[in-house]
């Protein structure tokens, strides 16, 4: 992050963390990795009735390099898994992952030869949004949880390692 030399006094870094966290939480650039039925609710959340833009997350970026939240929306099959992993690897730090829908959380009721049993077997996840598909309200709730997490995270190097392994919800 290049902030290493700033972390001399605790005061400056905590203040800085707060400011950056506050700014970051309202400028979520998400990469929607849409594969299945949950995408329908994703569309509903993104459009006028539920309007995800109110939370500063209205702008999907379709390039992994320009986005900081990976929204995994829909069932991930074995055929899809390597692609998801690749996209996650291409994203720059700091990055967060949202598992949207029960298929991405645990595999849902697709307990079979073709479906990955939860994306956390492949990549780390920050927020799980359960539901099959989750109602738009649940999605917004998950988003607010993610914002809290983003705002509370330290940017300074001492804590930077903690970014993507802990789990909220």
């Amino acid at each position: 992050m290049g902030l290493g030399n700033l972390s001399i006094g605790g005061m400056i870094t905590t203040r800085l963390d707060k400011a950056i966290g506050w700014a970051q939480k309202f400028s979520i650039f998400q990469y929607p990795f849409i594969t299945a039925c949950c995408g329908m609710e994703y569309m509903a959340v993104a459009c006028s009735h539920y309007d995800i833009d109110r939370f500063g997350a209205g702008l999907p970026r379709f390039s992994p390099r320009q986005s900081d939240v990976l929204m995994v929306v829909g069932t991930i099959s074995h055929k899809q898994a390597p692609i998801l992993k690749k996209i996650y690897d291409q994203m720059c730090e700091p990055k967060w992952v949202v598992a949207f829908g029960v298929c991405t959380c645990t595999g849902g009721f697709y307990d079979n030869y073709a479906t990955v049993q939860g994306i956390d077997t492949i990549i780390p996840v920050d927020v799980y949004i359960p539901g099959c598909p989750p109602r738009p309200e649940t999605v917004l709730d998950g988003l607010i949880k993610l914002q809290k997490k983003i705002a509370g995270e330290a940017v300074a190097p001492a804590n930077a390692g903690a970014t993507s392994t802990s789990m909220d919800v």
Binding site: H78, P82, I83, K86, N112, Y113, A114, I122
Partner: peptide
Amino acid sequence: PLRKDYPYNKRQPIVKPGGNI
């Protein structure tokens, strides 16, 4: 998989990225 002697939940290892996909 749709043969009757293939168990429905017999999983196979996930192919690594860069595999032939």
